[in-house]
Structures are given as C-alpha cells and as structure tokens.
C-alpha cells in the first residue's frame, strides 16, 4: 500500500504551513526556460462507451493561452482485433463526464479484461505520439460500511470503509474515489494505492469522519495498470512542487511516448449507498 498521499504528504507540508505564516510575497518578472511544444493526449477507453480523446499541446507556463486545440492531427485507435478506427476532429462537451474532447469515434467500444488497444497520433509538424493500454481485470468491491461518531445530533459525521480482495499473483494498482450523488462532480475522497504491502489480502480503504447523515455516496474502485498509476503520481508530484520549497519537482511519467499524457482502459466497480 502506498501511504505517500496521506500522512507523509501531510507531514511534508508542515514546514510549508509553518513557513507560510512568516512568509512575505511579491510578484516578480522572470524569464522561464523555453522549449518546443509537445503533443498532449488524454484518453480513457471504457467498455460500452464511444471513445473520445483530447489532443492539445503544451504551452509556455506564463503564456496567457489556456490551451491549444489541434485540428490537423490524425488520431488512430487500433482495436484488439487489429482494426483501425480513425477518430474524427469534432470538439465538444461530453455531458456524461462533463469533459471537453477534440476527437471522437463513430462507434461504441467493446473492451474485455486483457484486451490491448493502441493509440497513434501524428501531425503535420512531424510529431508522433503513440500509446498502448491493456484493460485490467475486474476487482469487485466486497463491502461498503460506515460509522457515525458520538457527537450530538446535527454534528454527527461518519467515516466510510470499502473492502476488496487483492489478487495474490499479480502486482496491482487501484484508484479509490468517493463522490456525493454524482460521479462527474468533485470527489470527496480520491487516492491511489498499490498492493506492495497488502498483496493477496482483504484490503480496507476508507476516509476520516466527513460525511453527514442521509448523504448519498458513490464509491468507485478502479483497477488500474502501473503506467496510469505512475502518471497520476507524477502529475500529483509536479503540481505539489509548485509552492513547496522542500519538494523536488518531478518529471511527468506519461503512459504515452513522443509526447505527454495518458492513454488507458478503465475497469471499475461502483456502489452507491445512503448513510442512515
């Protein structure tokens, strides 16, 4: 189990907290190092869902440009049976995920655990981004339970626990999320773990006391592959380094080659509970 996101991270932010209270700040003009823009791809394949993809490129950090879309890139998805699906440039908003995308397929995807997909993106500048992703196996959530604290009515809050069985013969990675009511809104809890210390065991993941009576919670357990786990870890580290003088800035560990970004196949289990 990886405990970096919880206690150690909190403790490493302690000096920042202490220093911030003495801190004096001012705006400064600086000239940052420059370099060529890199292709950025973000794509999550899901069984039964039409593939959508966002292709952009990196922009200078202090640029006023928020993001750049690239209409002239060619995006090809190779399915497990070897057929190629060229995604069309058709920017839009996916209402299900509340995400913008730049390219979309014409048909729904069929994905089964063990299926491998390939992504190939080229543009007229000669940039070439590739990626390969395999759908992980399904890990069921065995139970979800919660417990309220002893505080007076009106102040009572509950913690939530979810349990699942980790497979013994493989190195596994998970993403655990809890949303209130809808999954396309902010998460209440979101962290990643590996099974380094819990291999083959019944794993318990949970929260602190933070939920109110009658809350409707959606608990999601994603079984993910190592590249996606490392990508999330590195983006988290890179973002945390901004404003933390004790952090060593981390390079992004993309799941793709020839650019930056993530290409993965999702497999998750989900349970909805009402805290009573």
């Amino acid at each position: 189990m990886n405990f970096r996101p919880t206690s150690l991270r909190l403790l490493h932010t302690l000096p920042v907290f202490l220093l911030a209270n003495c801190g004096l700040q001012k705006d400064i003009d600086i000239e940052l190092p420059s370099g060529p823009a890199q292709l950025v791809a973000e794509c999550y394949l899901e069984d039964g869902i039409t593939p959508r993809l966002t292709v952009t490129e990196t922009v200078p950090y202090l640029s006023t440009t928020e993001t750049i879309t690239l209409p002239e890139v060619t995006v090809v998805l190779t399915l497990p049976n070897g057929t190629h699906d060229t995604l069309q440039y058709a920017p839009g908003l996916d209402r299900r995920t509340r995400k913008t995308y730049t390219h979309i397929s014409k048909r729904r995807l069929t994905a089964r655990p063990g299926n491998t997909f390939q992504l190939d993106i080229t543009d007229k500048q000669g940039r070439h981004l590739t990626g390969t992703a395999t759908m992980p196996t399904t890990i069921p959530i065995e139970s979800v339970e919660w417990k309220f604290n002893d505080k007076p009515e009106g102040e009572r809050q509950a913690y939530v626990l979810a349990r699942f069985q980790d497979p013994a013969n493989t190195t596994d990675f998970y993403r655990f999320q809890i949303h209130k009511n809808f999954v396309n809104k902010d998460t209440e809890s979101d962290y990643n773990v590996d099974d380094r210390l819990t291999n083959g065991q019944l794993v318990t993941l949970g929260t602190s006391y933070r939920f109110n009576p009658q809350d409707t919670l959606v608990i999601s357990l994603y079984h993910i592959d190592q590249p996606y786990y490392q990508f999330m870890q590195s983006t988290d580290d890179a973002r945390s380094a901004n404003g933390n003088p004790f952090a060593q800035p981390s390079a992004i560990r993309s799941t793709v080659q020839g650019g930056v970004g993530v290409f993965t196949v999702l497999n998750y289990q989900r349970k909805t509970v009402i805290l009573k």
Binding site: G35, Q38, T56, E57, T58, V59, N242, Q248
Partner: peptide, 10 residues
Amino acid sequence: TLPQSRFIYQ
C-alpha cells in the same frame, strides 16, 4: 527548478 510549460489534465 521552474517549469517550462504546462498542459491541461482533465
């Protein structure tokens, strides 16, 4: 170490 560029991660 300061960043050179940035990208949007949805």
